[in-house]
Design a protein around this nucleic acid. Structure first.
Lengths: 339, 339
DNA sequence: ATTTGCATTGAAATCGAAGTCATTATTCAA
DNA sequence: TTGAATAATGACTTCGATTTCAATGCAAAT
């Protein structure tokens, strides 16, 4: 009974409004789209009856006819990197400010990506912002074939014509290295993110290069997976066989914090007295007074805005050439390094 | 030129496939929906030509005719509470496992909610999971009117017939209090979340009640906003005028961590030697070896799954009565309290 | 060989708005 | 007052699938 009632309840459509207001369905449509040719009188009449009947335009129907879904897919990797939540929030904000909806996809493994891409084609999203690592050439090409604009966040793709927004890893890492060298550190250790990650590779290689520029060759490297635990484990792995280094350069803040905790809690090392640690990203926890990490802060909000701006531009004008935008981060001289 | 090319490129529709395969458009549709009456021969033929032409069913068109969008709105408050990212990830996971898409809405202020709700009606989502605080009676009623099932996460609504999934705050808080009392703490301080938050009010009042049960009356309360900074500020505010308490009971982990940092860094207090601090939620950072917070861990994954299960059930069967599910958390005896 | 029953199939209606086009109303200048 | 130009309006088509319904084919049963 109640069930029937439920099923029977009909949504109010533009035809219902039209009939009640004594105008055509077209008039109702025009009343709701700004800038179309309609008299104030008619619009008022329509709006009034629409409100009375509780009419809401059906976005699905609009999508179908107008070939614009107003939906942007945001693809995000697992949450182990704490910069993502902040970023996601900013991006969502900028997108909705411009009248877009966010279709969220999270993925942990690469296999899932195929699956997600398949859904993207059927859901006809207007564009994609990818915060995920597992994108390769093949994937990018698919987007081109489907005419769906993409912006890759913090992913270099030097050889592909695709939109990217990056923090200036090179500049940031060099500043960190310089800061450490100037403070007199001599024995370095690099904790890198996974080799599948472009960003990790970038940050690691630039660090090593800049260290060489200062005359420090053959700096040892250990590999983690960006997680807190991997920061801890890498450090204790190192300590099992070696003396403590002067300074540890980590690919991100989360690993750096793991490293600091391990050094302090397990090995009783004073940071920064006995050991300096630097990270990268500027996650919220990096600023906690228990750490006050020396790091480079990604200008998250500007980068989020840039991603959205670029994407919108490509959606408006699909033939604009791809853009690779780079924003510089801010060196934060915290209390995990000496001066 | 390229532009024209772009505009002209037509998407492949079911008609195109039908023509190429020499069958009717209906047959193409049936080939792609499982369980419909179609011969293996025809299905194979359709699938083969579909693949050849690169056909993907248009989900928008399907939504329009079938009155199911397959989209679930997830409404989430600002990211200051670090349990949200984890939760969001789990919920998204469970939803997509069941073939649903996630439309993400983030909100900071209450005004935005009106706006968001408006969008929900036009986008015809199948259901809503609300992780946000700013829901009141009026909002809940609107969902009923629009026949959209909702699940509220960690929000009591004792007097409203609405689906909720809650961690057992009462049980968790009592365990924390008992733990503190048994360890010999006598002078308590409660750091509450904002009074607009049901959860905060709940946790605070239960803590106070349980303290009274142990004979501790008139325990002082300070109010923060769930953020790390508010944890710090509340504690130093207290210290400005009073002696340090034995134990601080915080409404969530983030405030607890702020409180600990402030106590250790600014006031040089040993935690747990001189001061015990407990939180609630079990965020990832609570387990960091720099803290090892004593807290109650929300069974995030089960709660996420429960939310999704309940929502799906209401979507299938809109007249099922509302369900209020409560899951118990796990007491984590960390190193921020004595035994 | 004919009938019955069931699985396939295609034609056509449908979902709800937007956009095209032809028609009517209005405004302003001559 | 008339005509030209412009604005407002409604009828109809369209988007791309699902779904209903009637028609067809085929196999088993008589």
């Amino acid at each position: 009974m109640a069930k029937r009632n439920h099923q029977v309840r009909k949504r109010v459509t533009s035809y219902d409004v039209a009939r009640a207001a004594g105008v055509s369905q077209s008039a109702v449509s025009r009343a709701f789209r700004p800038g179309l040719s309609i008299s104030d009188k008619t619009r008022d009449k329509v709006m009034k009856t629409a409100k009375k009947l509780g009419y809401r335009p059906n976005a699905i129907a609009r999508m179908l006819i107008s070939k614009r879904s107003g939906m942007i897919a945001v693809i995000i990797s697992s949450i182990s990197n704490l910069i993502y939540p902040e970023l996601l929030s900013r991006i969502t904000d900028h997108l909705s400010r411009r009248g877009n909806k966010v279709l969220l996809f999270t993925l942990d493994t690469a296999e899932q990506l195929e699956n997600i891409l398949d859904q993207l084609w059927t859901y006809r999203v207007d564009g994609v912002i990818a915060l995920a690592a597992h994108f390769d050439h093949k994937d990018i090409v698919q987007f081109e074939e489907h005419d769906i604009p993409v912006v890759l966040y913090n992913r270099q793709a030097p050889d592909h014509p695709v939109n990217t927004v990056n923090v200036d890893h090179a500049q940031g890492v060099r500043q960190l290295v310089n800061h450490l060298v100037k403070a007199g550190n001599r024995r370095f250790l690099v904790l890198s993110g996974p080799t599948q990650s472009d960003v990790a590779n970038d940050r690691r290689e630039i660090a090593l290069e800049q260290l060489r520029n200062h005359g420090f060759n053959d700096v040892p490297v250990l590999y983690g997976d960006y997680s807190y635990e991997s920061g801890r484990h890498c450090f204790s792995e190192w300590m099992a066989e070696h003396d403590a280094p002067d300074a540890v350069i980590c690919s991100n803040d989360t690993m750096a914090i793991g490293c600091i905790d391990e050094a302090r809690v397990r090995f009783g090392l004073d940071v920064p007295g006995a050991l300096s640690v630097v990270g990268f990203d500027g996650i919220l926890a990096a600023f906690w007074s228990g750490y006050e990490l020396t790091t480079v802060r990604q200008p998250v909000n500007q980068m989020a805005k840039a991603s959205v701006d670029i994407l919108m531009e490509r959606i408006e004008n699909p033939d604009a050439p791809p853009e690779k935008r780079v924003l510089v981060g801010t060196l934060i001289k915290g209390k995990t390094t000496r001066n």
